[in-house]
Design a protein around this nucleic acid. Sequence first.
DNA 1: TGATCTTATATTGTATACAATTCATGTCCG
DNA 2: CGGACATGAATTGTATACAATATAAGATCA
Lengths: 233, 233
Amino acid sequence: MAGDLPKADYCANSRCMSRASETAYEKIRSFILYGEARPGMQLTEELLCEIAGVSRTPVRDAVQRLENEMLLVRSASKRLSVADWSEDEIDEMFALRAMLECHATERAAQRMDAGGLKRLREVNDLLTGAVQKPRPDVATFLEANRQFHDLILDYAQSPRLSKLLPALVEQPVVRRTANQYSGEDLIQSAKDHDELIAAFAAGDQDWAGAVMTSHIRRAFHSFHLATRGSDTD
Amino acid sequence: MAGDLPKADYCANSRCMSRASETAYEKIRSFILYGEARPGMQLTEELLCEIAGVSRTPVRDAVQRLENEMLLVRSASKRLSVADWSEDEIDEMFALRAMLECHATERAAQRMDAGGLKRLREVNDLLTGAVQKPRPDVATFLEANRQFHDLILDYAQSPRLSKLLPALVEQPVVRRTANQYSGEDLIQSAKDHDELIAAFAAGDQDWAGAVMTSHIRRAFHSFHLATRGSDTD
DNA sequence: TGATCTTATATTGTATACAATTCATGTCCG
DNA sequence: CGGACATGAATTGTATACAATATAAGATCA
């Protein structure tokens, strides 16, 4: 029943996907995040055209967007390759994400209303259910988690944050290790969300911001343990 | 001797500018920042082609970059217009800039060396000279100020910050009011820079970060006074 | 052999023609 | 009159051909 993962159709968050440059963006992005792309891999526009099934013009549009999100990088001689980040850059990404999500949470706390609280609770109920099964349903968890954070971002009412944050969240390094999170990590995430909702309900922006900072930094810590914690793996 | 302002050639910070999409980017950007563009003004790709002197393909490249920097916005029906920010969005921009520049400064403090300190002092000597004249040389001040902050950003050694921050710094609202800064504001800026250098020399990242935060928030306050401080103007 | 220049190939950058969409105008019908 | 619909113009989106540039391979000469 929970077998089919969300493949490449992200219509929820993005545009209508009717235009060729949108499909190109989605397909190339999936190729990088979930496909056979590997960090440092050299790419050519023609290859990406085959992947996307459109001509070079919309592919170049998509490539520029992905360069901005730093999923693709361009060498001095204009050659494309899949981004390959250093450990320092990954750490930095988490640090920036913690700062910006904390800020977004503080803004959201100032603008939260009953409808928002209701929806946050609904989403987190779904998330909590996915976590508490004997074997956690990671796909549902990730989707509900994304919705929860998107909802907060919406309530932050900051176009600029809405532009900056998503590029820091959906990243190959995060996605690749998502399935390695322990059941306890997931349960703690659900509890963090509960406390966030309490902070929102109380209208306490400092409380909310602090919880969010802790939430992200714990994720960073889990990631650290999963990827670099033990050298026996 | 200091009469000719830097017009539209920003080769220092940017790419080689030999390609048509680069010239398009620079010219359209200048049109928005220093030219006759007005907030909310409707634009057409053809008009931008005339401004840039190139065809639509590189213009569309440039437009996408400027959309990402939020200097241009696209309506639901894909029409282009010059960005017109609300007061809240401007405040938010300063808040984000303060956070990110503080973070960059802390990183730079950890990585500062003798050569960097030397160059910071040189640039700030130039800036201090421009400030202390009977009538401050605002153009020289702005250029030296930009170099000072760019130097810190370089030493932060964070590709992601280097991508995010510039879009928050060079903005029409900032540029338009730069000439309204009082002489005291400029002198205080130079002093802030002196203290930053001292913090860097001491290797105290918290001190440096705090000075930078204060520096940006003072700029915000000056901007606030200049634009919304008095309703008698 | 090895270094440099030359030439061929591959890749990216630009212009233009055409398709798809959106906007504006005016007409028809109620 | 007033609103829905149709038609034309304006604008954006896509494909393709061509130009410019970078890489790679090979030839020439010391």
